[in-house]
């Protein structure tokens, strides 16, 4: 009986350790620190506001959706509001050029697409490549 208990506790310990290992792996695998590269890439970005559009083409070394957006804002002199959500280890865009997420409860949010595909990770985690087309849309939360 005592031996069975010891084996049981050992199994539990293994379960806990594998949980810790799995968690470390998950955290490590979602960490990306790429924000700029040495060789420039050619990208195009289009930002659809509520009644305005900004188009931007660039040979850039900024290779995430977020850093490209910052570059565009700097180039055209408009503001970006963003929050780093520590819990999700990701940047969340609150506003672009004065258009604020869910302003007065309008349920319009800034969402991005790369080559037509919905951005499924934080914009600071989404790497872009030569020839990519990035779109920011101020729209209802949807694909």
């Amino acid at each position: 009986m005592r031996r069975k208990n010891i084996i049981g506790w050992l199994v539990l310990l293994i379960v806990i350790m594998s949980g810790i290992g799995g968690l470390q792996f998950l955290i490590h695998s979602t960490e990306t620190h790429i924000s700029s590269i040495e060789e420039p890439i050619i990208t195009t970005m289009r930002i659809h506001g509520d009644d305005w559009i900004i188009e931007y083409s660039s040979a850039t070394t900024n290779n995430t959706v977020y850093t490209l957006l910052l570059e565009c804002a700097s180039e055209y002199n408009f503001t970006i509001g963003s929050t780093f959500w520590q819990g999700y280890n990701a940047v969340f865009i609150n506003s672009i050029n004065g258009a604020i997420n869910n302003a007065d409860g309008n349920n319009l949010w800034w969402q991005y697409y790369v080559n037509g595909g919905y951005g499924e990770v934080g914009c600071d985690k989404k790497e872009i490549f030569d020839g990519d087309f990035v779109e920011w849309k101020y729209e209802k939360a949807q694909q």
Binding site: I16, L23, Q143
Partner: peptide, 30 residues
């Protein structure tokens, strides 16, 4: 609460939820 009520959006939400569920399961196991 947040999304327009379509099945595509529901699928999207559950897809985006997957990594966070993995985190949550690890948290529970620990």
């Amino acid at each position: 609460i947040v999304y327009p009520h379509t099945t595509d959006n529901l699928r999207l939400v559950y897809t985006l939820q997957l990594p966070f569920t993995l985190y949550h399961l690890m948290s529970t196991i620990i």
